[in-house]
Deep mutational scan, measured.
Amino acid sequence: MLDDRARMEAAKKEKVEQILAEFQLQEEDLKKVMRRMQKEMDRGLRLETHEEASVKMLPTYVRSTPEGSEVGDFLSLDLGGTNFRVMLVKVGEGEEGQWSVKTKHQMYSIPEDAMTGTAEMLFDYISECISDFLDKHQMKHKKLPLGFTFSFPVRHEDIDKGILLNWTKGFKASGAEGNNVVGLLRDAIKRRGDFEMDVVAMVNDTVATMISCYYEDHQCEVGMIVGTGCNACYMEEMQNVELVEGDEGRMCVNTEWGAFGDSGELDEFLLEYDRLVDESSANPGQQLYEKLIGGKYMGELVRLVLLRLVDENLLFHGEASEQLRTRGAFETRFVSQVESDTGDRKQIYNILSTLGLRPSTTDCDIVRRACESVSTRAAHMCSAGLAGVINRMRESRSEDVMRITVGVDGSVYKLHPSFKERFHASVRRLTPSCEITFIESEEGSGRGAALVSAVACKKACMLGQ
């Protein structure tokens, strides 16, 4: 009897593995994704193909990295998701002549009506938060230079001027797309009239992360975010950046690689679950690469896999709870928690219980395998993109072996128990001629924006502006 049951459990697990095998990517698959990513990057950089390229390769006008001589107080704003952060950054000489960066910050959550109302409502709310922060720190009387981390696709015309191309991540505030974001912020500050600010720089969160990590390690020339969304930036040779005049030196390019796949480059790798996630998203047909990796989508992918296993009578005796059938019910943090389970399955059992399920031991094991399959594919897909960037940098610099540091931020990278190990191992397999160091950014977005502002202020002083 026991043997029969054991055989049935083994057969069930084997069927589960057959279904989950769809998520496995072979090294040849990853090399294919990497080569296609490089081709799209090239198209994004070139003037004649930029418009139709899915990977936009947006110039950021960040050319210099901090040298350690900029000092002063800077205000930093960070808008990239449902939370908005205001930070005071003091850049100065530390002990023994070292450079020191001290920060104080406060988080504000953005109400739904500000995210989806008008641009005026959104930026009025942001300036209200700045006003509140300055009151708390008794700094209303000071006109501070301000660095703005704005983590949406922007076409820069200068370091302090950028046109919002399109909202992502659930934002829909009308009247912002096609307009200068810094102008919208300046107008809102003017409307309030109770404080003055000098907006000197606007950067993407990947750029802010790279600059913040450069402060720790001067070989950091790539910034990457794996959180709600997924994106990367890197220092490109100016001669390859056709959208900006000049051939000397390097400029940081914001790849906006989340949109890779929007022209069909990933079609052969998309599964039924991916198509369902895409169809029910706020932007169907867009940001397809990001939807395979980002935390906004990972939990939902797992939920759809679990429903398939229920329908195949391989999980929960073929019956799903009402909660499990509800879109968004299986949160991405559950994926991390399930994979963090120590082996007694308590954590998995508790999560499934909150979803109205009474799982068996085998159910718990199957749910864990589903989570591992989805998150491992995410790590491997992400590795193909980064390997594409790094191999490109090595080739354009004609280096036999390139040493490089990548600064990384984002909740999936930082909080998932195995993502970074799987990701690092896969990147290294795909970049055999590179020695890569990964560092995690601390308060990256805010500190990085302030350091970019410090560079901009120093330049302005040198130019006598």
Rank of each mutant, 00 (worst) to 15 (best):
M57T: 07
G294L: 01
S396V: 12
F269E: 10
G92S: 11
N254R: 02
G299V: 01
E40S: 10
R7G: 13
A114H: 11
H317N: 05
R155L: 00
L276W: 14
E67S: 15
R403N: 10
I126Q: 00
I366E: 13
V412W: 05
G249K: 04
L307K: 07
M8I: 07
Y214K: 09
I225Q: 02
S398L: 11
Q287P: 08
I348W: 07
E440S: 12
S418Y: 11
E9H: 10
K136C: 07
V253Y: 00
E93M: 12
S426I: 06
R85S: 01
L77Y: 01
V200L: 08
I439L: 13
T332H: 00
K15E: 13
R377G: 03
A11E: 07
M87V: 06
L451A: 00
E120K: 09
S281A: 13
V101M: 10
D262P: 13
C213N: 15
A282T: 14
I390M: 06
E70P: 15
R422K: 15
Q219I: 14
D400H: 14
I293Y: 01
L301R: 10
V200M: 04
I293Q: 03
V427Q: 02
S441P: 14
P66S: 14
E435K: 03
E443M: 15
M41W: 02
G294K: 07
L304E: 07
N391G: 11
C461Y: 12
H416C: 02
Y349N: 07
R428C: 10
V241S: 06
L415N: 05
R43M: 10
V408F: 00
H218R: 15
V89G: 01
R155A: 04
V335Y: 02
M224T: 14
I19G: 12
T354G: 12
Q323G: 13
M107G: 14
K13I: 12
S445Y: 00
W99D: 13
D400K: 10
V199W: 00
H156Y: 02
G328P: 11
D135A: 05
R275D: 15
T361I: 08
R46W: 05
I348S: 12
G446H: 00
V222Q: 03
N254F: 03
F419N: 06
I189G: 05
V222S: 03
T65G: 14
E196C: 14
R186V: 01
M107I: 08
I211D: 04
E395S: 09
Q138P: 03
L292F: 09
D341Y: 03
E221I: 12
M402A: 11
E27Q: 10
L146V: 03
Q98C: 12
Q323R: 14
T437Y: 09
A53I: 03
T209N: 14
H156Q: 07
V33F: 06
M462D: 15
P66E: 06
Q465L: 14
L309T: 10
N83A: 03
N240H: 14
D400S: 12
C461G: 11
E245P: 14
M121D: 05
G264I: 03
E421M: 13
V86G: 03
E265R: 13
E237A: 07
V182A: 09
I439G: 09
S360W: 07
L88N: 11
R397Q: 00
G72F: 00
M34C: 09
Q219V: 15
S375G: 10
V302I: 06
Q26M: 12
G246V: 03
Q337K: 13
R192L: 08
R43N: 09
G94A: 09
H137T: 10
V199G: 02
S280Q: 10
V244E: 01
S151L: 04
E22N: 15
L75A: 15
G448F: 05
A11R: 12
V302H: 06
T326K: 13
M402R: 11
S396N: 12
M37L: 10
V401D: 10
Y413P: 03
R186W: 04
S109H: 09
G328A: 10
S418W: 12
K291C: 00
R429S: 12
I225G: 01
G258A: 01
R7D: 12
G68C: 14
S54K: 05
A425S: 13
L307W: 13
L134V: 09
R429G: 11
K56W: 03
Y289I: 07
E339C: 05
I436D: 00
G92E: 09
S441L: 04
K90N: 15
K346Q: 13
S373F: 10
S54V: 12
F334L: 14
K161M: 06
E17F: 14
V16C: 09
F419G: 07
N204I: 02
D262T: 10
P359T: 08
E22Y: 06
T354H: 07
Y108G: 04
T431K: 02
K458E: 13
T49P: 03
H416M: 14
Y215F: 15
E290R: 04
N231E: 03
G229F: 08
V427A: 14
N180L: 04
S100K: 10
L292N: 07
N179T: 14
V389N: 02
E290C: 01
S321F: 07
C220E: 00
A456H: 15
N83K: 05
T228Y: 00
E331K: 02
K143D: 04
D187A: 09
G295T: 07
L306W: 05
L304V: 10
K190C: 06
L58V: 06
K12G: 12
E395C: 06
K190V: 11
A188G: 06
G318L: 13
D78C: 03
L309Q: 15
S321V: 09
T361K: 11
S174C: 01
S433R: 11
R308N: 10
R325E: 11
D73T: 15
E9A: 13
T376A: 14
E95N: 07
Q337N: 12
T361P: 13
R325C: 12
Q323I: 12
I225S: 04
A449Q: 02
G193V: 01
T326L: 12
V154Q: 03
H137G: 12
P153Q: 03
M107N: 07
R85I: 00
K136T: 10
V207P: 00
L304F: 08
E322W: 10
L451Y: 10
V338A: 08
F150Q: 05
L75V: 12
V374D: 01
E272V: 05
V427M: 01
E237G: 04
M34L: 13
